[in-house]
Write a protein that binds this DNA or RNA. Structure first.
Length: 487
RNA sequence: GCUCCCUUCGUCUAGCGGUCCAGGACGCGGCCCUCUCAAGGCUGAAACACGGGUUCGAGUCCCGUAGGGAGCGCCA
């Protein structure tokens, strides 16, 4: 399947080649926020240029790679709607091909067997460190012709000794590495399995990747990979190295920063479009614009506008964007997602207001869907007890009269709609010569159990007449009982 | 230690030699609106890491310094 996409003659003029980018995570964990940003940029670049976006799973490390992690990555990309045109390809399914290329390099004298033991290599490194030199392989097996009994050799790439490699990076600009700084890296282990830097090159060549967009922790690998491309007679792709993403405190991202897996953002009530918008502005900008629809991102994205420095995640800004999309989004669709959160909370929403209406009522007062669900449970379940502070302030003896009148007025309404409810509440306030707050707040605490809710008329409409009146009675009872005990 | 990368408000960023006593956004403060909480409107505080050059003129170009980061594996 992979083979059909292969060509051994990648020598078309670059301008005539269709842009092809790839995202190549190693499945050793979930899709974290940094990986997601890299995937987003690769995807945007391909979409902007009408090219292809390829997904490749780099699972050559059999020890640490798991099928669960592969699934987690696929789930994360699906949630962010980063659709791949090809793949996922798995490196573990391409071992024959890697072996073939290793042999080719061996045959051409561009690679050689190295019989040094791990112990010898360690000692060599220790000595170099002691001499304050950069630890690297010294090439002692370069000209060896005889095998060493009892040692399974590794295969090393014969890196050029002189000259330099110039990387014309799309975000970093021109970066020059001297070949003398590089050493002969291992391309095949003693058990015959290929290593990362080698597989990447073979894959990018075979899959005809034109633009490698990845984290800048790979910048130092780039000259080695370019040398391998050349040894293979292939034109290296173009490169763009993205700056890292840091935690809110400016330190390297880790679990202690909370949500690191993109799917955790869903659990926390974030919308994929918000996460995407947040991510695209992390390290990239288009003037002063903050909000980007998918179409705009694709149209405006330019790798040249990517920043050079690492950026820290700002949870507040993500929350702001999330609320923006909650306010702008389709209530019907958001309602479904809200329902997903209620389900996770074990709240049955079948006997309450429509989820889309709850979204409409709360869009301006919730940063996340999770928060919205938590704040709206009272629409679907009776609360155990009143929020203490709100009850102490609003459920006092002086609230009995307004609540009683409210009950009567509301019970008499012909139509249970917000405008009529609004009028009824106002009428009670006027009749009693009270400020609206003196009436609406006790009512709010009575029906919601707490001091915060959407506008009172809308809250009542959504709750329904029966439950509303029931809860008003309950509140009156609560006041009476409480007062009786205290006096 | 060596090589490479990075450095504008707390944070994300605009700026591509003069239009910058540095603009926008999040957050924060104040005011307005208001049945709660929000949302919204107006408004305020807040930054060119440092030192040398180049230039009539530097946040913008060059070189250092300092501070961060990455790589240097039979990990990816």
């Amino acid at each position: 399947m992979v083979e059909s996409a292969l060509s051994r003659t990648p020598h078309f003029p670059r301008q005539l080649m269709k842009v092809r980018t790839r995202f190549a995570p190693s499945p050793t964990g979930y899709l974290h926020i940094g990986g997601a940003r890299t995937a987003l940029f690769c995807w945007l670049y391909a979409r902007h240029h009408g090219g292809d976006f390829v997904l490749r799973i780099e699972d050559t490390d059999r020890e640490r790679s798991t099928p669960e992690a592969v699934q987690a990555i696929l789930d994360g990309m699906a949630w962010l709607q980063l659709d791949a045109d090809e793949g996922p390809f798995y490196q573990t399914q391409r071992f024959d091909r890697y072996r073939e290329v290793v042999q080719q390099l061996l045959d051409e004298g561009k690679a050689y067997h190295c019989y040094c033991t791990r112990e010898e290599l360690e000692e060599m490194r220790a000595q170099q460190m002691a001499r304050k030199e950069k630890p690297r392989y010294d090439g002692r097996c370069r000209s060896r012709t005889e095998p060493r009994p009892g040692v399974d050799p590794v295969v090393r790439f014969r890196n050029p000794l002189e000259g330099e490699v110039v990387v014309k990076d799309h975000v970093r600009g021109t970066v020059v590495f001297r070949n003398e700084e590089l050493d002969d890296l291992i391309i095949a282990r003693s058990d015959g399995t290929p290593t990362y830097n080698f597989c990447v090159v073979v894959d990018d060549m075979d899959m005809q990747i034109t633009h490698v967009i990845r984290g800048d922790d790979h910048l130092n690998n780039t000259p080695r990979q370019i040398n391998i491309f050349r040894a293979l007679g292939a034109e290296p792709p173009e490169f763009a190295h993205l700056p890292m993403i840091l935690g809110p405190d400016g330190a390297k991202l880790s679990k202690r920063h909370g949500a690191v897996s993109v799917m955790e953002y869903r659990n926390d009530g974030f919308l994929p479009e918000a996460v995407r918008n947040y991510l695209v502005r992390l390290g990239w900008s288009h003037g002063d614009q903050e909000i980007f629809s998918t179409e705009e991102m694709i149209r405006l994205f330019d790798i040249a506008d990517v920043n050079h420095s690492a950026s820290a995640i700002n949870p507040d800004k993500l929350a702001w964007l999330n609320q923006h999309y909650i306010k702008e989004g389709d209530p019907q669709r958001l309602g479904e997602e809200l329902g997903w959160h209620f389900e996770r909370m074990g709240v049955d929403t079948s006997n309450g207001p429509a989820l889309a209406d709850v979204v409409r009522a709360n869009a301006e007062r919730a940063k996340t869907l999770k928060e919205m669900a938590e704040n709206s449970v009272f629409f679907y379940q009776d609360f155990e007890e009143y929020e203490e502070k709100a009850a102490r302030k609003n459920l006092q003896p002086d609230a009995v009269e307004p609540l009683t009148r409210l009950k009567e007025g509301l019970a008499a309404l012909e139509e249970w709609k917000a405008p009529a409810i609004h009028d009824a509440v106002n009428a009670v306030a006027e009749a009693l010569e009270l400020k609206l707050g003196k009436v609406a707040q006790p009512l709010r605490v009575a029906v919601a159990g707490k001091g915060v809710s959407p506008p009172i008329d809308i809250t009542l409409e959504l709750l329904g007449r029966e439950k509303s009146i029931e809860r008003i009675e309950r509140a009156i009872g609560h006041i009476v009982q409480h007062t009786a005990y205290e006096h």
